[in-house]
């Protein structure tokens, strides 16, 4: 028996909007730790890891570990029927081939049940080793989204370079090239407006902008984004999900041919 009650149901709506472009079908895993997902895009270039810790739910009952295969587009269709202020509860019986999404309006005057068919998905779970990153950039998520969008109108790839001068995003295309430098800036009114650069050593990596733009679908989840870079490793683009967890996007770099 599984029963997860999330008072801030809008978080789950935003999570689905953040990942459904990248991944078509995925297994949602429930355990005592929380509600999680790990999936790659169809070309195995990017990986998304979601964790919503059990403590973040108002009620969390998971009698035994459960893996539920879902088509994310269908989950999104279901969750779009929930109001932004609704409380969302996920329910599944042991051995059932369906999951039920229950939506409750804040004043309890409307309660809806949406039952969705589960699917069998063969998925490979990957071990993500703990890594020391050469550079970690924390910046406003809207700023990062703007940069990715702007650069993708010029080129297909972005070179992200971190030096003691700041973080530089560069692209080049048929019509010309573009460079955007963001310097560390902690003298802001609100902490979420700060750009903080922690650099152990300079690093420069090239990535496909198409994927970066897809990751920025998570922007409504968090005012800030953290970008962790090391040479020879996929970049990690992380958005916190309130105080209950995170979405981490891993993207393999472009490498010299």
């Amino acid at each position: 028996m599984l029963e997860l009650r999330l008072v801030q149901g809008s978080l789950l709506k935003k999570v689905l909007e953040a990942i459904k472009e990248l991944v078509t079908d995925a297994n949602f895993d429930c355990s005592a730790t929380g509600f999680s997902l790990q999936a790659m895009d169809s070309s195995h270039v990017a990986l998304v890891a979601l964790l919503l810790r059990s403590e973040g739910f108002e009620h969390y009952r998971c009698d035994r570990n459960l893996s539920m295969g879902m088509n994310l587009n269908n989950v999104s269709k279901m969750l779009r029927c929930a109001g932004n202020d609704d409380i969302i509860t996920l329910k599944a019986d042991d051995g059932s081939d369906t999951v039920t999404f229950m939506f409750e309006s804040p004043n309890q005057d409307k309660i809806a049940d949406f039952e969705m068919k589960l699917m069998d998905i063969d998925s490979e779970h990957l071990g993500i080793p703990e890594a020391e990153y050469h550079a970690i950039v924390k910046m406003p998520s809207a700023e990062f989204a703007r940069i990715c969008k702007d650069l993708s109108s010029i080129g297909d790839t972005v070179v992200i370079s971190v030096t003691k001068e700041g973080v530089k995003f560069s692209t080049r295309g048929d019509i010309g090239n573009a460079n955007i430098v963001c310097r560390q800036n902690t003298t802001v009114d609100k902490p979420e407006e700060a750009t903080i650069i922690e650099m152990q050593e300079p690093v420069s990596l090239t990535f496909a902008l198409r994927y970066m733009n897809s990751f920025t679908k998570a922007t409504p989840l968090s005012n800030t984004v953290t970008i962790s870079l090391s040479s020879e490793l996929p970049v990690v683009v992380e958005y916190k999900v309130a105080d209950m967890g995170y979405i981490r996007f891993y993207l393999a770099p472009k490498i010299e041919d």
């Binding site: 990957l126 071990g127 996929p234 891993y250 393999a252 490498i255």
Partner: peptide, 14 residues
């Protein structure tokens, strides 16, 4: 010239 890397060459199946 660059080519796209693959996640599976960085993270191993468990």
């Amino acid at each position: 010239d660059t080519k796209q890397g693959n996640i599976l060459s960085f993270f191993k199946k468990v």
